[in-house]
Design a protein around this nucleic acid. Sequence first.
DNA 1: TCACTATATAATTATACATGCATATAGCTA
DNA 2: TAGCTATATGCATGTATAATTATATAGTGA
Lengths: 130, 130
Amino acid sequence: MIHEKMVELVARRFQVLGEPCRLRILQALEGGPRTVSEIVGDLDGNQPNISKHLQILFDAGLVGRERSGNSVFYSVADPVVFKLCELVCRSTARHATHLGQYAAGTRRRSGIQTQKSHLRSKVGSLQGVN
Amino acid sequence: MIHEKMVELVARRFQVLGEPCRLRILQALEGGPRTVSEIVGDLDGNQPNISKHLQILFDAGLVGRERSGNSVFYSVADPVVFKLCELVCRSTARHATHLGQYAAGTRRRSGIQTQKSHLRSKVGSLQGVN
DNA sequence: TCACTATATAATTATACATGCATATAGCTA
DNA sequence: TAGCTATATGCATGTATAATTATATAGTGA
């Protein structure tokens, strides 16, 4: 059992990771610290937007930063993010594979199978949905 | 380097995990499959809301479901979610600890330290902002 | 068939958030 | 100081999403 406050903090971290642009930023930082300009160059977003995402990542403690002269270098604060991405990546690939099997196979569309209906039919549905 | 489509899929999964209510649902499922009613009983949300969150978790492939008579049993589809939560939990705890140290120590407010200013002062700031 | 339980869905509202543009601020150099 | 570069912030806007209420649908048993 986890405390309510902790659940919210953990959820917030997942939420911060749940943005394609921010994942790409972390990816760009995988090789080491980079300045904002460099990151903007790697990705195709505009500078203010990248800066705002970097701020969000920083507030979440996922990246660190240090000013060097006129530039600010950002770096991944906790390498665990790469582990997380790897795990989710694998899991996502598995899920996509399953979806592909279903699509290529029975053409069933993710409905709930009644235990009984499961015995008489390959195609279950939940209130005719999906 | 990861494909753009994959980045979006992974981000979507993180986003689905980035909701306190959904984390609590997964927590409730840690002991094994449960019906919607049971989950609603464990948490304090109302039934339609829980059902919608369950649908989102299902679409993301994070839970599976099977109807049994009048009830629908939901279960965790991929135990990797618990690993993810554990990793984020630890990382979050570390981050919170650091914040605590800063707060108790120099009272600095997470500004960027210039390399030079770092040498002459313990308190850095970035445009006077946090 | 009807009544009942369990679950899902629709419609609404309020809020959070990403984006883009304009602008402000910090640091450097002359 | 002024001008330049790099970065951050404010504001406006559109979109996504969570919560709530009411309702619809599936299954069960009489």
